[in-house]
Amino acid sequence: MDTTEYHLNWAVQLRRGWLELCVLNALQGGERYGYDLVRALAALPGLDVTEGTLYPLLSRLRLTGLVATRLEESSAGPARKYYALTPQGRRELARMNEHVETMVAQSRRLSGSKERT
């Protein structure tokens, strides 16, 4: 296995949880139309995610109770589905962000202590 392949595998494993965090963070500012949300996330550099995989993720988050949906009739097409954080989702997002920050800080601290020694 060359290092590139190794990196790709590592990135896939990391992205699984990271994607959910991105979705929740994207909703922190308020509700968003599903299609726009997916297009925005898919366009994020480095996330390397297809639009098709985001919809199952949104479905899981809804079933888990972290996000809620609302349909709004549209004159131009079918009803539009809007996603928003639930109170539970906000709490979970705060915990996740805190956890990430802790992890990054710990990782950096480990890196820094090594440098000091």
């Binding site: 599903g34 299609y35 997916v38 919809y55 949104l58 479905s59 809804r62 589905k81």
Partner: peptide, 15 residues
């Protein structure tokens, strides 16, 4: 994957 297929299909259709 734990998703609701019908919901995902509806989203795909909208997409």
């Amino acid at each position: 994957s734990g998703a609701d297929p019908d919901e995902v299909f509806a989203n795909w259709r909208s997409h």
